[in-house]
Design a protein around this nucleic acid. Structure first.
Lengths: 216, 216
DNA sequence: TCTCTGTGTGTACATTCGTTCACAGAATGT
DNA sequence: ACATTCTGTGAACGAATGTACACACAGAGA
């Protein structure tokens, strides 16, 4: 009651609203079922304030997709720094970084998993676009590291796409378990690692295998 | 206004309600955002009727999961009939059947894709359980056909799990395109086929590859 | 210093929601 | 034939929702 009604910083309420939406999603609510009043309530702000910052919930969702893009880029950067040499630990280290980021940005990845089959087409496309970008960057990195050099560009891109999808699907596993159920998280980590190993082994033998299938 | 208020058949309204929920989902709405009144309105029934048949929307969702199970089993049966010999067309034929069923039961698969990251934990687990069952059956079939006979049970199950996940992720691709955009559907079909080929090639070389990774 | 613009507040209203209740007509078992 | 049970109806409620409007106050530019 002392400092209410003050304007702290430009964009402060805006961030608070986005954060509140994410928090609700993190608590198990689905983004599509969130209402304007609900979000403003969680943010400790009057409903009208919402319209000062967003036109509707879809608008807010698109902003969240942008921020999600930043999170993904941070994750990619860390992976690039820590995983430089292409040895047999490449996959495991990358999965570790992935799991760590999911735990640190739990709500964002909740939102991402929901958005893939969400209500707003725009959000859906946005997330899909982020995944494409991620796959492309992954392909570039692998090229740079000299991994899978026998694959053509299209085939490498195909492989990376499958990798990203597989990892993305692991969200839905990860999100189902409590954040401190280490045993179960370890199990998901192992399983994801094996999935990726399976894919990479397939990619290693891809050309020949593909020719064999197509030749007949 | 002639025959209103008649009770047609037991469970008729019940089916109409489930069908209406699916229809709304098929129109792009997210299941989590559907309300009781909305569903009953779509079904051409008074809101109160809902409670005669379901306790709440989660309850209806669980029934839908059960029906989804039937759809999946039908799909599996057709695949078993039409894909008997394990030749190089196995994957393509299976993907064909899969695509055909998704198109024929569009709304169900919408619901499934949404439910994986949905609001109701019970529905989430139900869908997850259906996927596990599907993967197990797939593993049995492959065993019976003598495919991947060099893999241990655990590794075969791992492979099938990845296959099911990959196919499930293709839903979200398929659902984004118009049902009669044949060119795009064909593209998704091809891409999915290649994903599976990649996985199976990986599985073929799995033991050796795994040992090589683990041995060092 | 003064004005203007941006941002948050409070009030308000029509609409929609979930849920309850008493009632009516068809089906079912005896 | 009759009582019971099952299923759908209509009206009604209190609560929550989206959105509009007028107002208040802080900071930026003159």
């Amino acid at each position: 009651m002392t400092d209410r009604k003050k304007r702290r910083k430009p964009g402060e309420t805006r961030e608070k609203l986005m954060e509140s939406a994410l928090t609700l999603v993190g608590k198990g609510r689905h983004y599509a079922s969130l209402g304007i009043r609900e979000v403003t309530r969680q943010a400790g702000v009057v409903p009208t304030s919402f319209y000062r910052n967003f036109r509707n919930m879809d608008d807010l969702g698109l902003e969240l997709v942008d921020q999600l893009g930043l999170v993904l880029r941070r994750m990619m950067r860390e992976a690039r720094i820590n995983v430089v040499q292409a040895d047999e630990r490449l996959i495991e280290e990358s999965v570790d970084i992935f799991i760590r980021h999911v735990e640190a940005n739990r709500d964002f990845f909740f939102f991402m998993a929901q958005g893939l089959a969400g209500e707003s087409r725009a959000v859906q496309d946005g997330i899909r676009s982020e995944m494409r970008y991620f796959a492309t960057e992954l392909a570039n990195d692998l090229r740079r590291m000299g991994v899978m050099s026998h694959l053509g560009d299209a085939d490498l891109e195909l492989t990376c796409d499958l990798v990203v999808r597989t990892v993305a699907f692991s969200f839905t596993d990860l999100l189902g378990v409590s954040p401190d159920d280490d045993a179960q998280i370890q199990q998901i980590r192992d399983r994801t690692t094996r999935f990726l190993q399976l894919i990479f082994i397939g990619a290693e033998h891809w050309e020949s295998g593909r020719k064999a299938k197509e030749g007949v």
